[in-house]
Amino acid sequence: GFYVGGQESANGWREVLKDLYDRGAQEVLLGVFDGLPGLDAAFKEVYPKADVQHCVVHKVRSTFPKIRVQHRTEVIEDLKTVYNAADEELARAAFDTVKAKWSKLYAKEMRSWEEQLPTLLTFYKYPALIKEAIYTSNPIERMNKEIRKRLKPMNSLTNMDAAEKVIYLDVIDYNERFAERVIRGFG
């Protein structure tokens, strides 16, 4: 779908998701999100049986600036033990270790991770072969970055229709380039 809208909100996302549902995307089993407010709730409303996976990469990136410079490398390496664990049980044990180590200095960040842990570790319910495809929303972010990169030098677009045409053509090109690719683990 292609939608032009204002603020990202639960109502806005609900309309987008309902449109996708009405157009045939009715058996969605997993949504991978970067943590936008309202998106999870809207998704669960339209697809109540589906799982939610929060993007681990976004979570790490949002944690990074809140960590003192001298601790950043160590904290990030410790967090990797959580999402790179062999299974969910080991991931939760790794988080307990990280939490015990860093809670005194970074209580708020560790609490945030703990609250989101169930949706950060959803990918463990799925085959290990597809982990890399579902634990992050980076492929979508990459496409958005390419679109922004294309629009930036065109700062003199005459109107919204012109911008929409550029985006539409970029998305068509993107779809054609990736249509035959098989996502690792899904072949």
Rank of each mutant, 00 (worst) to 15 (best):
K99F: 05
K80L: 02
L30V: 01
P127S: 09
E164V: 08
E132M: 09
Y21E: 07
R184N: 04
A133D: 05
L120T: 00
L121F: 02
V52W: 11
N138D: 13
V4I: 15
Q116G: 15
R61V: 09
N175W: 05
D87P: 01
N175R: 06
I130E: 05
L117F: 06
K125M: 06
D51S: 11
V69Q: 14
K44A: 04
Q70V: 13
N175C: 09
Y126C: 02
F2G: 05
K80T: 07
M143R: 09
V69F: 09
S112R: 11
K104I: 07
R61Y: 05
D96P: 04
A179I: 12
R111I: 11
Y47T: 06
F186W: 15
E146D: 13
Q53K: 12
V4W: 14
M110I: 05
T97C: 08
S9D: 07
T63F: 01
R14F: 11
V52C: 10
A94V: 08
E74F: 05
M143N: 10
A179P: 03
V182E: 14
E45V: 04
N138K: 12
R150G: 01
E115D: 14
Y168M: 05
Y124A: 09
D96H: 07
N11L: 15
V46Q: 07
K152P: 02
A107V: 02
V57Q: 03
G31V: 02
C55I: 08
K149L: 08
R68K: 15
N144Q: 00
Y83E: 01
L121C: 01
L17C: 07
G35H: 08
N144I: 01
G5W: 03
V52A: 08
N159C: 10
P37C: 11
G35P: 06
E27V: 03
V56F: 10
R14K: 13
K59F: 12
D173Q: 15
Y168I: 02
V75A: 00
H58T: 10
V171A: 10
L29A: 11
E114Q: 15
Y168V: 00
K18C: 09
T119L: 10
V57Y: 10
Y124L: 08
K145Y: 13
Y106A: 01
Q26R: 15
G6N: 13
E88C: 11
R23Y: 11
V60M: 11
E115V: 09
L79D: 02
T158R: 14
S112Q: 07
L30P: 01
T81V: 04
E45S: 13
V28C: 14
K59I: 03
C55F: 10
R14N: 12
N175G: 04
S62R: 13
R148M: 06
N175D: 02
E74L: 13
K66I: 08
E89S: 14
R184P: 00
I134F: 06
